[in-house]
Every structure is written in structure tokens, then in C-alpha cells.
Design a binder for these strands. Structure first.
Lengths: 254, 254
DNA sequence: GCACGCGGTTCGTATATGCGGACAAGGAGG
DNA sequence: CCTCCTTGTCCGCATATACGAACCGCGTGC
């Protein structure tokens, strides 16, 4: 592990994640880097416009960070299409929809389209959540056997909320059952008061991504459930088709 | 300038920009870094998932890059709203629309919404273009005097296409005139066969961003011009209002 | 008004990093 | 089949980087 590199990355992640202005000492404390070591690094990051220094000397994320991520995302023309399908689904369902992939036991959220009915923001693209606690994650894990799940999660499943499934055996059984039905759900397992449904997206038969919808419990109507699922499945089918055609790959997954 | 930091950033920019797999020697040649120095850096970048190594040992951009940019963009809730307005404009006009800010003489494109009529991709978010060559850039430069322009561009204006305005005096005159009219245009000055219109977005009276529409010349109809402008102006007014309210700031500009 | 705490900057030294060269492995071409 | 070339890996030495301590400037509270 190369220390200077590691430090640069941790600094960038810190500013991007928190979004608040940080002072030299804040970095120093948070990351355990001596102040004097930090200074030349921060100055260089400023030169390259990854950081900018406010008048009061504080550091803030700057545009190069954005360009970096956007340039990367720009290499995946499929994403625009995914977004279009999500928008269509949101239009029909009226709730926020997500597109995500599996990454080492976590869901990595890639796209989201907000519902017209505003609700506090749940997850932003780029964020990760334990797959076993989310509907979209269950869809992504659905084809894994109990043994494979144990390999992915060698330790116990850390609960995210009180309702998170923490037993691998239970999870595996749930996945098997949902795989039969063709859709996956989650009730307050990752966020209180939220219920999610998800369906997988396949390429060459294998699950490579999933889309989901998040519904606040107080707005949930049981009789609409099959409509939600159907809408998601239509979108998923379209996305699968495009991915199949364009042979897109995203990170480790696609 | 801190060498290790500089190198990390250049490596990240290289993979994000090009989008093709790169080998150790490619980095070495491209960036002038000795192979042996590169190895530990690349390994660290892999650990942190900024890069991944394919079976053949080549390096490729990985998901952490995406998370970084997305996390940053996620700090600007205003962006979702900007996108909504762009979508509305695209719906009415039927051509691709952009949202960008000025950054050191360049337009930094932040958002785009594709036209339903497919055309080859012009610019992706995160990319930069010389402001003087684009409609959106002219809107962003509109309040600068000729003297200020000369400070921003101490050297001559490098032409992007044959039609790019390369004389600062001409540019200044054009800006003044467009400022009167309330909109800015560009005819094949940044891209052949493309014509653009742009209007500024203001906060506290000052121009802080702009939106534009790009129209292929063969599809352009003169009699619709005022409709294009009006649509953009409506969208700009809405966006200005929101930015004013939320007091959003984006990088150096907002 | 003074002392103290806190944040940023500077500096000399110890050391981890960077470098070139040597080496091994694989492929292409004769 | 052998040779040459290319690429990635390893190694020891020179050096740029990292670290802690001391210093400076500022604000706060006593």
C-alpha cells in the first residue's frame, strides 16, 4: 500500500463525501496525517482544481472532482438509456426509482430518478449500501447459493435497521422464494418507513444489475403492488435488451 | 507542487478521460513516470477500486471514480432541478440542451439532456471547451469588458473550427450586441454543422451559469428561432429563481 | 491586558519513496 | 527453434518526502 497515494484518495473521498468546508486540521485529525505533510498535498490538489480554498482558508471540493466522475460515467453511453427507462417508470409509479450494481457485497447506486412527490432523499448515486439489506441488493444476490453468500459475507450480516435480515440462512431462503416470483422486496430493512421492490436486469442470463422503486409506507397500497412490479419488469426488460445489444460493461460487473 | 499527488491525479485523469484499458507502460510513457515508481501507485489505486485490473493485467477505471464524482455532484441538490428544467426545454424544442458554468476561460458542462432525435454526441458533462467558441460560453463571458477578456485570454484566441471568432475585439463587440438582445448564438464555431443558442442564468444580477440548445444546421428553421430563445429564457428564469432561493454554489462560480 | 488555546507555517533531520538497472516471462518474427 | 523485443517485477542506492517540534498570529476568556 503506497502511502502518498492512499492519502490523496482519502482526502478526495473526504471532501466529496462530506460536502462541507474543511480546514487543514480537520483533514489532519480525520485522516491521521501530520499537518505539515498535508500542506503540500492540499496545495497541489488546489492547483489541479480538485479543491478550492475559500477566503477564510478552508478547503472545499472543486470542479475537477466533478469532471473526473463525469468523464468516467461518460464512457458508459448506456447510462443515458437507463435513465430514460427509470424516468418512464417513475412517471407511471410516481415514486423514486433506482438502478444499481453489485460490488463486493454492496449495492452501488448508479442512477436514480426522483419521484415527483418530494420526500427526503434516501440514497444518492455513487453511494453504497449492504446488498442484503436492500431490495435491489437482494435482486443482485438472487442467484448466489447459501455457500456463495457465506463467502461474500464471511462475518455476520450487520443489521442496518431493526428489521434487517441478519441470518444468512433466512436470506438465502428469501432469495430463493423471490427468484421464483421474479421480484424482490424489502420492508424497512435499510430505511425506516420505506418499502422497496426490485427486479433484476440480466445479460446473457446472468444478473448484472437491478432496478428498484422505494415507496414510503404511509403511501403504499397493496392492490397496486402488482402494477409496481409489472412496471419495473417492463423497464428491466428494455434495459436488459439495450445492455445485451451494446455489450456495455460497468466496473467489475457489467 | 507535490510530485506524488500530481502523479496520482494525472493517472486518474488519464483513465477517466480515455476510457480504454491501459497497461503499465502506457501510463509510464504517457505521463513520464518510471515503471517501477508506477507499480505501487497503481496497486494502491486498485485496492481503493479506482482502477481494476483485467485478466490480461491491463488497468481500467473502476467504480470508486464514479462514486467520487457522484458524491460531489450529490452535494448540489440544485442540479436535479436544473435537469428538470432542461428536460422541459428539450421536450418543447426537441434538441439537446446544456447547462454549464465558466471556469477560467472555459465552459465546464455540468448537465445535458439529449434530444429525442438522436445525433452524434457533442459534449458530455464534465468536459470543457473554450468559452469564446461556444454560445453558452459567450453568455458566460457577456458581462466582461474587452480588458477583462484580454486578462482571461492573454494569448490569442485559438480557433476551434474555421469559424471560431479569434479576435478579442470582434468577440467583445459581439458580446455587447448579444447582451442587448438577451441571448447569445454561435454558428459552427465549436462544432461543424451545429448552431447554438444560449441564455445566461443570474444570481444577484451577476451571470453565474448559462443554458444552451444545440441544433444541427440541416434541421434549423429560422422562423423558430424566437421560440427557441423564449423557451430557454423561461427555463433560465426558473433556474435562476431556484439558485437564488437555495443559495447554491458550484465550484468557483455559483 | 495578558495568558492560553488553536490553527497555520516553517525547518532540519530520519526515512520511506523514487529511480535506474538488472532480471524474468511471454510473444513475434525470422 | 532460436533470437530479439516488449512488458512486468525486483532490488539497492540516492533523494525527495514525511514527520515532529518549534514558531507565529489570532481570537477568546479570564
Amino acid at each position: 500500500m503506497h502511502q502518498p497515494t492512499k492519502r490523496v484518495l482519502e482526502i478526495l473521498e473526504a471532501v466529496a463525501r462530506d460536502g462541507e468546508d474543511k480546514r487543514l486540521v480537520d483533514f489532519s485529525r480525520e485522516l491521521g496525517i501530520p499537518k505539515s505533510t498535508l500542506l503540500p498535498i492540499l496545495q497541489t490538489l488546489c492547483r489541479y482544481r480538485y479543491l478550492l480554498q475559500t477566503e477564510s482558508g478552508q478547503y472545499r471540493a472543486d470542479t475537477a472532482l466533478f469532471s473526473l466522475g463525469a468523464a468516467f460515467a461518460g464512457n458508459f453511453p448506456t447510462l443515458d438509456f437507463v435513465r430514460k427507462q427509470l424516468e418512464k417508470a417513475v412517471e407511471q409509479i410516481g415514486e423514486t426509482c433506482y438502478f444499481g450494481v453489485l460490488e463486493k457485497g454492496d449495492v452501488l447506486y448508479i442512477e436514480k430518478v426522483d419521484s415527483p412527490q418530494p420526500l427526503r432523499i434516501l440514497v444518492e448515486p455513487g453511494r453504497r449500501l449492504p446488498a442484503y439489506a436492500t431490495a435491489i441488493g437482494k435482486a443482485l444476490l438472487s442467484e448466489r447459493s447459501e455457500g456463495e453468500l457465506r463467502r461474500i459475507y464471511p462475518e455476520d450480516l450487520a443489521p442496518v435497521t431493526e428489521k434487517t435480515v441478519t441470518d444468512i440462512r433466512t436470506l438465502a431462503a428469501q432469495l430463493m422464494q423471490s427468484l421464483q416470483k421474479g421480484y424482490f422486496c424489502e420492508i424497512e430493512e435499510s430505511t425506516a418507513h420505506i418499502r422497496c421492490f426490485a427486479v433484476p436486469i440480466r445479460k446473457g442470463g446472468r444478473v448484472i444489475a437491478a432496478i428498484s422503486v422505494a415507496i414510503p409506507i404511509f403511501r403504499f397500497e397493496e392492490e397496486k403492488e402488482s402494477f409496481y412490479i409489472e412496471t419495473l419488469q417492463n423497464a428491466a426488460a428494455e434495459i436488459s435488451r439495450i445492455i445485451e445489444e451494446t455489450d456495455a460493461h460497468f466496473g467489475t460487473i457489467f
